[in-house]
């Protein structure tokens, strides 16, 4: 439902804007309550949230921070809104294999995991992009954005989701109930894709971080001594991992079979 994309984008932008005034590393990242929304919206609204979060962040940029980083901001925020619902229930033993109602510890744990992965993927994409442009060192943004995306949402996001999930379900607006199965697709490679996504995210981010702080000797001797620049290493090393993340979206599909019993459909 396009309306949900619109609403997610508008709310996300609206809560981003006031924080433009008290920036820590502004424009690229702020310690912001807005960061609670992406994983929550993702698990409630699925694809509508992924686009809504990406567009909402872009609109946020239009209030004074639109620049070379905005394209990567769009991509990173798309990850932020897309990964939680894509990964939910696909992570084997790490998954609760239940709908994300935040009704028990396993669900909360899974929430924290998917929030952490999506938050780090977002940090990875943005920091990699700005390193590519030579505007910010990967270390700084890679860490700051990840902390922003993970700490607050991990600490309180699941409470917000718990307060909303049951109610949104009653209103008939949970995405798994709004969308037809054929609209979502069901790839046989979905589980593999989810693991690929998570592993590529964590490995790529960690590797780039390591290269960026200069521990890159093992991976590229050229780094410190030969003057070709550690930055190039980060960019080159990160690229295949980012490609793998994008590939995981092609190969993956979200779970739509959780919590189907009960709950009437509106709209």
């Amino acid at each position: 439902m396009i309306v949900l994309t619109v609403l997610v984008a508008a709310v996300y932008a609206a809560v981003l804007i006031p924080f433009k005034a008290i920036p820590i590393v502004p424009g690229i990242t702020e310690l912001r309550i807005a960061q609670v929304l992406p994983p929550v919206a993702s698990l409630l609204f699925g694809p509508a949230a992924a686009w809504g979060i990406a567009i909402g962040n872009l609109i946020g940029d239009l209030f004074g921070t639109f620049g070379p980083g905005s394209a990567f901001g769009f991509l990173g925020n798309f990850f932020l809104g897309a990964m939680p619902y894509m990964l939910w229930g696909r992570l084997g033993p790490l998954s609760a294999h239940q709908e994300p109602a935040m009704a028990n510890r396993r669900q909360v744990l899974e929430f924290i995991i998917v929030t952490a992965v999506s938050g780090i993927a977002c940090a990875f994409a943005i920091a990699w992009g700005l390193e590519l442009l030579g505007l910010f060192p990967f270390t700084v943004l890679g860490l700051l954005i990840a902390m922003n995306n993970v700490i607050l949402p991990g600490a309180v996001g699941w409470i917000v989701l718990r307060l909303l999930y049951r109610r949104v379900k009653r209103w008939g607006l949970i995405w798994t109930e709004l969308m037809e199965p054929e609209e979502v697709g069901n790839q046989p490679t979905a589980s593999v894709a989810a693991w690929l996504c998570a592993v590529a995210t964590l490995a790529g981010w960690a590797l780039c971080l390591a290269l960026s702080v200069g521990a890159g000797g093992k991976f590229g001797d050229a780094g410190l001594q030969a003057g070709t620049g550690g930055a190039m290493n980060v960019v080159l090393a990160g690229a295949p991992f980012l490609a793998a993340i994008l590939l995981s979206f092609v190969l993956g599909s979200p779970r739509t079979d959780l919590g189907q019993q009960g709950g009437e459909r509106a709209a």
């Binding site: 396009i2 994309t5 619109v6 609403l7 984008a9 508008a10 709310v11 932008a13 609206a14 809560v15 804007i17 006031p18 686009w51 809504g52 567009i55 909402g56 872009l58 609109i59 239009l62």
Partner: peptide
């Protein structure tokens, strides 16, 4: 989606 969200931003602020 983009322009309607833009229209709603002041409402939500």
């Amino acid at each position: 989606a983009f322009s309607t969200a833009l229209r709603l931003v002041p409402t939500f602020v």
